[in-house]
Each structure stands twice: as C-alpha cells, then as structure tokens.
C-alpha cells in the first residue's frame, strides 16, 4: 500500500520549528548523547548482521583458496585450483550439471509461474464471494515448509503411486514415467514441484498489486469503449509493472539458492549423477558431507558471485525506480 505520505512528511520534518530544549544541557552534551543512542540502538543489529551474514562470505573467499579438511587453520594453499584447476568446480561435469539445473529452474520459474499467476490474477481480480477463502487456499503451498512439500510429492509421485494411478484413470497412462528415478526427467519433476509451491506466492503478490489499481481508471477505460482485454493490456498491466519486476527479483534469488525441495524429494543417488543437483545441494554434498571444505567454499563463492551480480545488475537497470528509498539512497 503506497501513499504519498512520506515525501510530504519529509518536507515538513525539514521545516519543523526548533524543538524546545531542556535548559542546562550544552549542545556538545546533546550531540554526544545522540551518538550514544544511535550506537546503542543500531549496534547490536550491525554486529549480528556483520558477523553472521557478511563475514562468513569473506571467510568463504579465503577458505576457497585452500585444500582443507576443516580442522585447524588451512595451510595447503591451492590458489584458484578449486575453481579452475584440473579438479576445480568448473572442470567437474556434475557441477556444470548443477549450474544448468539452476538455470532451468530460474528460467522455468519465470516463464511458467509469471504468466500463469498473472493470467489467473487478472481473471480473478474482482470481488467475488468467497475470495478470502480462495486466497487462503492458494497460499497454502507457499506456507508449507519445503520439507513437507518435498516429502508429500515424493510419496504422490512414487512409481505406481497416486499420480500414476490418477493419470491412468484419466486415460493418460502413456505419460507415466519414472518421475523421480529417470535422470532425464527428474529435474522437470523438481521444476513442477517448485511451480506448485511458488505460483501461489506470485499470484498473491499480483492480486495485491491489482488491488492498488484505482477502479476509476478501469471504469474510465470501459466508458471510453475499451474492451476487457484492452483495459487489462493498456491500463492494468502497466500499473502492475513494479510488482512484477520485484517478483522477478525475488524469484531469481530464490531459484539460485534452491536446496530443500531438491534435497528431500530427489534421492542422493539421482542427485549425485547430476540429474537434479543444484549449486546449493552440490555445495553441501561436497563441503559438509565430504569434508572438502576448501572446495565447498569455492562453490559457495561461485553461488554468491552469480547471485550478487544478477541482483545488482537487475537492481541497477530494472528495479531502480521501484525501490527507490529502500535499496537506494533516499534524501531525508
């Protein structure tokens, strides 16, 4: 819900009358006190954020230059071997498969979930009776934990399980395949599960964005003789632009770090063939489970760099006007 409030208020804040000061305190003392408050109130957040979010990334860069079993201090310096060496990540076909799988998930999520959710949102953007119940139901997949979703679909998609028997009873028995076992199919099964889980999220965002389009605009277009489709195309959709762009951003970051659903729903054997690996599952398999900490951290750095570059480029060229004041500097 956007209002024009802050700009007005910010203007007023600049022009507000001098505050009555308690007598007897010097200007210097007041300034000192203000800084104590600033440091005392933001300090804990800054420390926690720095130590547990940013510092680990810096350590990852350092560790990734070593071969290291995780005990003691890393000593076996390998330079960039973990990245580009003979046994480096970029030489491992399984890692390249993981990169490709992340790309499939990223592009697949955008081109399937986006239009699907948008179409449904446009058709449902009216106050029909039962709308709140509907909203509750479509949001359920998003609220369930990834683990629950993964196990649920794993059971449904078992060979000769529920999905297969439903397909057979619909006369679509020929479609039945090794959803979770066939290495050439499993990544598409994963994409299907992720689509099921996250389309509702896009839908709710779009419906929220549509609720902010003033009805006067569409009514005016209708009075001017625009068809329903023309109204959607030329009036409603342009006003939804910022919501769509922010959804794309969130979906991108989410796709790059997919872990839980893949980890739970596809078996380690299928994963280790590269059939359903993502960068994150590959990283945990190698770093945490195989104790190749240097190598695992190199994968972490690759994941970080890809996400960060994508995010910054997207933010710089696409998102700027949408989040002005949030991710960019705001004058105040």
């Amino acid at each position: 819900m956007t209002t024009t409030g802050p700009t007005v208020l910010a203007g007023r804040a600049d022009a507000r009358p001098a505050r009555p000061r308690p007598t007897g305190t010097s200007r210097a003392a007041r300034t000192r006190r203000k800084w104590y408050e600033i440091i005392g109130l933001t300090g804990p957040a800054v420390i926690v954020f720095t130590v547990f979010v940013l510092a680990p990334m810096a350590f990852a860069v350092y560790y990734s230059l070593y071969r290291w079993s995780g005990y003691g201090w890393p000593t076996e310096f390998k330079g960039l071997d973990n990245y580009f060496g003979e046994y480096g990540a970029f030489k491992d076909p399984i890692f390249l498969d993981a990169l490709r799988n992340n790309a499939i998930i990223l592009v697949g999520s955008l081109v399937i979930q986006g239009p699907l959710a948008l179409g449904i949102a446009l058709l449902l953007n009216r106050n029909f009776r039962g709308r709140s119940v509907f909203r509750l139901l479509v949001f359920v997949p998003y609220v369930l934990s990834e683990v629950t979703v993964g196990i649920m679909w794993q059971l449904i998609l078992l060979r000769d399980g529920t999905a297969d028997s439903v397909l057979q009873s619909l006369g679509l028995g020929d479609l039945v395949t090794g959803w979770l076992a066939d290495p050439s199919v499993v990544i598409w099964t994963m994409l299907f599960i992720l689509t099921w889980k996250y389309t509702g999220f896009a839908l709710i965002l779009f419906l929220a964005g549509l609720a902010n389009v003033p009805p006067e605009l569409t009514e005016a277009a209708a009075i001017d003789g625009a068809s329903w489709w023309q109204t959607q195309r030329h009036v409603t959709l342009p006003m939804l632009g910022s919501t769509i762009r922010i959804w794309i951003f969130l979906s991108m970051i989410g796709s790059l770090q997919v872990f839980d659903v893949i980890w739970v729903a596809s078996s380690p054997a299928v994963r280790s063939l590269g059939a359903s690996n993502t960068m994150a599952t590959y990283m945990v398999d190698h770093g945490f489970n195989s104790r190749e900490w240097g190598y695992g951290n190199a994968v972490a750095v690759i994941l970080f760099v890809i996400s960060f570059v994508a995010a910054v480029v997207f933010q710089r060229f696409v998102l700027r006007r949408d989040v002005e004041g949030a991710l960019t500097t705001r004058k105040g």
Partner: peptide, 18 residues
Amino acid sequence: TIGLLFPAAAGILPLYLL
C-alpha cells in the same frame, strides 16, 4: 540492504564453521 542481494544459502558453509 546488502543482505537482500544474495541468497542466505551461499554463506552456509563458512557460517557453520564459524
């Protein structure tokens, strides 16, 4: 807001070590 620009999973290995 830098924290919004990259996925939390990226730092999970060094975080565990920390």
